[in-house]
Design a protein around this nucleic acid. Structure first.
Length: 446
RNA sequence: CGGGCUAUAGCGCAGCCUGGUAGCGCGUUCGUCUGGGGGACGAGAGGUCGCAGGUUCGAAUCCUGCUAGCCCGACCA
């Protein structure tokens, strides 16, 4: 993409409404614009990042054997009356009336709808286990939206629901989701720590939430330093293998890790002092096992060979996809702007032409741009009539992990400069070598 | 939902107290010079001062009501 043709409305000054760093940087880098309190338009670059996160989530869900689908944003109040949550949910739920006077709502989550779909089509234990999920916009009418997309009213969430015959099978689903979520975050270039949590309005017995560490996080978290060393890496995982999922689950949930909600000071104090860590964290996902809460109230049953009809065991799981964009920036930025992890960066490399209009520089940049495009590096070429300083500042702000700087000075020696956004380290290379290096870096990402 | 605050050009702000023809910086348009970290000079464009009412000869400024947004707290993915 050529910057001269791209809609990227960068702001030089901080919008006064934005307090925290991710909100500020998302506005300044032209990723989002606020439409109303807690409701945002996603401009091209923000949208691109959002789609990248979505793709990673889909990919890992499908790998775990889950079924992608799409449910509507608007739901019928009747289903929610059936589960009893129409009254319980309170003012957070945006209620709407259609022209016929029917009560509807903008879905804050989908347990009722998915249970309805399930009970209307599944009758036999032979169809179990089954996990369905979708990535869809939700609406929760927060009393006080804040922090940009981190706590908006409208937000994009992946939510999934598992249906199992019994508790043992449902617990495997729980473990499987734990593992697939860990993988998902890792692929996004993020460290998300699973922590024992409260179940809140969803209700249920077992639940963990996933926290990304960041100074501006909304919850205080306590954990054993050892958990920071855990990585799944490229390990092949058999999601149908109960023991394997259970052992990974155990590995990741054994070290102490809790939010202030469930923190137990006594247990925490038993960890060696040098491993006791306190930090702030942003919640980016949560998994629940809630047994037969919805299948009982909504009569979602299957026939079994021996016990007649039994209610299915369910769980639900969510990843806040739009919130994740903010969380990544909170965890990865410096005073000059965003620093994107390579896996989710909107563009693979920024090409900066230091002297637009200089024949040599223009030609070299065009060549680099075309080659990088063909190689799948997805370059953003700053071809604007701007001075070098302005181009550097823009690139730093939008935070592409790599920058190729092209100027007459280097071209005299046949080299360009390849700079890493994160470390600031740069090296002079021929254009060919620079591209080769980038190709290697990006092909590593699965 | 309690407490605090804001609304003036695309963005950031001054002007309001003490009423009298709306201003600054950045951005933007055109031109010239420039060209390795937000450059210089010159010339422009751009605002029913959030909305409605009131006081006044006259309201961005004073008064009343409304709306929107932000911050702290309680609450939440």
């Amino acid at each position: 993409m050529r910057l001269s043709k791209y809609f990227l409305p960068i702001l030089k000054e901080n919008p006064s409404d934005a307090q925290i760093v991710s909100h500020r940087l998302m506005l300044r880098s032209g990723m989002i614009r606020q439409a109303q309190s807690g409701i945002y338009s996603w401009l091209p670059m923000g949208y691109k990042v959002l789609r990248k996160l979505e793709n990673i989530v889909h990919d890992e869900q499908i790998r775990a054997g889950h079924n992608p689908m799409l449910m509507p944003t608007i739901q019928s109040a009747d289903l929610w009356r059936e589960s009893g949550r129409y009254d319980d949910y309170g003012k957070e739920m945006l209620r709407i009336t259609d022209r016929h006077g029917r009560d509807m709502l903008f879905g804050p989550t989908n347990e009722e709808l998915i249970t309805d779909i399930f009970r209307n089509s599944v009758r036999s234990y032979k169809d179990l286990p089954m996990t369905l999920y979708h990535i869809q916009w939700k609406f929760r009418d927060e009393v006080r939206p804040r922090f940009g997309v981190m706590r908006g009213r409208e937000f994009l969430m992946k939510d999934g629901y598992n249906f199992d015959l019994d508790k043992a099978s449902a617990m495997h689903s729980y473990n499987r989701h734990m593992v697939s979520y860990l993988r998902t975050y890792e692929r996004m270039g993020m460290k998300a720590i699973p922590m024992r949590a409260d179940s809140g309005p969803i209700g249920g017995e077992d639940t963990h939430e996933f926290l990304v560490l960041a100074d501006t996080g909304e919850s205080e978290v306590f954990f054993d330093r050892n958990i920071l060393d855990l990585h799944l890496g490229d390990k092949e995982i058999d999601y149908n293998n109960w023991e394997e999922c259970a052992s990974i689950f155990k590995e990741w949930t054994t070290p102490y890790a809790r939010t202030d909600e469930t923190h137990d000071a006594d247990l925490f104090s038993k960890i060696p002092r040098e491993r006791q860590m306190t930090s702030r964290g942003i919640e980016v996902g949560q998994i629940f096992y809630f047994g037969t809460k919805y299948s009982d109230s909504m009569s979602a049953k299957v026939s079994t060979p021996s016990d007649g009809e039994v209610p299915v065991h369910m769980g639900s799981h969510g990843i806040g996809v739009s919130r994740m964009v903010g969380a990544i920036i909170e965890a990865s930025h410096d005073e000059n702007g965003i620093i994107w992890p390579e896996a989710v960066t909107p563009f693979g490399v920024g090409i900066v032409n230091l002297k637009q209009g200089d024949e040599q520089a223009d030609i070299a940049c065009e060549d680099l741009y075309k080659s990088a495009t063909i190689l799948g590096i997805d370059p953003l070429y700053d071809d604007r009539q701007e001075r070098a300083g302005a181009k550097f500042a823009s690139m730093d702000l939008i935070g592409l992990p790599w920058r190729i700087t092209v100027g007459p000075r280097g071209l005299k020696n046949g080299v360009v400069e390849l700079t890493c956004r994160k470390t600031g380290v740069s090296e002079e290379l021929t254009p060919e070598l620079a591209l080769e290096k980038l190709t290697k870096i990006y092909s590593r990402l699965s």
